[in-house]
C-alpha cells in the first residue's frame, strides 16, 4: 500500500497524578509515516522528550494487537479514535493527513481515577467481576467437556459477549459514565450457557450493586457505548441484563 509522511500537531492531556490539576500540552511531530501505528507515533514523540530531558507521556499499552485491553486513549473526542471496532493500538496513522491537529485525552469517568497523564485506574472492573462474574467451580470438579452439549446459537452469542476486552471505552463514551455494556457482556457470556444458570440471579444482583458502588452512572440507552466498542459488543446485552435483573428481583431466591 502507498504511504506518505505527515507533520502533525498533538494536544495531549498532562496530569501529574490524581490530586494535581491537568492541562493540555501541545507538541509538533514531524516525519510521521502513514504506516505507523498511533502508539508508534507517540513512541517517537516520547523518545524525543526523553532525549530533551522532559517527562515522556504516560500511557497504558501492552499487547499492541488489540486484545489485552490496556490501551485507552480518547482521540479527537472519541474513545480509541476514528476507526470503527478498533483499539487505540490498532489505529494506524493513515487515518490522518498531513497538517492535522489531534487531541488526546484519558478516559474520563469517576470510576476511573487518573493515575498519570493518559493512564487511569480501571481496577473497578476487577471488583465488579469479583462480585459475581464467574462460575463457582473448583478445579478438578468438571465432567467431560462433551457431556453437556450447548446449542450453537447460544454458544456463539455467549462467545460474542465474551469478546469484551475490559478496556473501558464504553464507560468513556457514555455521558453518564455507565459501565452497563461491560457488565452486561459478562452477564450474557455466562448467562447464555447452561453452566451459568445456578448463579444467574445472584450474579446480576451483586454485580449491578458493585457497579453502582464504584461510582459508575446509570444507563439511559443512548448507544454511545456500542458505537465505540472495539469488539462490537451489542447493546442488546444490556436489555438481557435488565431482564435478568428484573427477574432476579422478583424471584424468591434473592
Amino acid at each position: 500500500m502507498d504511504h506518505y509522511e505527515m507533520k502533525l500537531t498533538l494536544k495531549v492531556w498532562r496530569q501529574a497524578n490524581n490530586k494535581s490539576k491537568g492541562r493540555f500540552e501541545t507538541f509538533q511531530v514531524d516525519g510521521i509515516s502513514s504506516e505507523m501505528s498511533f502508539l508508534e507515533m507517540i513512541d517517537i514523540l516520547n523518545e524525543r522528550l526523553v532525549v530533551e530531558g522532559q517527562d515522556p507521556i504516560a500511557f497504558d499499552h501492552d499487547c499492541r494487537e488489540g486484545i489485552c485491553g490496556s490501551c485507552a486513549m480518547h482521540i479527537n473526542g472519541r474513545p480509541h479514535g476514528p476507526w470503527h471496532a478498533t483499539t487505540t493500538c490498532q489505529l494506524h496513522m493513515r487515518a490522518f493527513k498531513d497538517g492535522d491537529t489531534i487531541v488526546v485525552e484519558p478516559w474520563r469517568a469517576n470510576g476511573f481515577p487518573i493515575i498519570k497523564d493518559l493512564v487511569t485506574d480501571r481496577s473497578a472492573f476487577d471488583r465488579i467481576i469479583q462480585a459475581g462474574g464467574f462460575i463457582s467451580v473448583n478445579t478438578g470438579n468438571a465432567v467431560d467437556g462433551n457431556a453437556l452439549p450447548i446449542n450453537k446459537d447460544n454458544a456463539d452469542a455467549s462467545f460474542a459477549a465474551a469478546a469484551c476486552i475490559s478496556c473501558g471505552a464504553c464507560v468513556a463514551a457514555c455521558k453518564n459514565a455507565s459501565a452497563s455494556l461491560f457488565l452486561s457482556a459478562k452477564i450474557s457470556h455466562l448467562g447464555l450457557l447452561p453452566q451459568g444458570q445456578p448463579e444467574r440471579h445472584k450474579r446480576v444482583i451483586s454485580m449491578v450493586a458493585q457497579m453502582d458502588k464504584e461510582g459508575f452512572g446509570s444507563c439511559t440507552f443512548t448507544g454511545a457505548c456500542e458505537a465505540v466498542c472495539p469488539k462490537e459488543i451489542a447493546i442488546t446485552n444490556i436489555s438481557r441484563m435488565h431482564k435478568d435483573y428484573l427477574a432476579a428481583g422478583l424471584s424468591a431466591d434473592n
Binding site: 470438579n141 467437556g145 455467549s158 465474551a162 457470556h189 453452566q195 451459568g196
Partner: peptide
Amino acid sequence: DQCVAQGVP
C-alpha cells in the same frame, strides 16, 4: 473439561 465448566465459550 475444567475450562468448559468455567464457561469458556
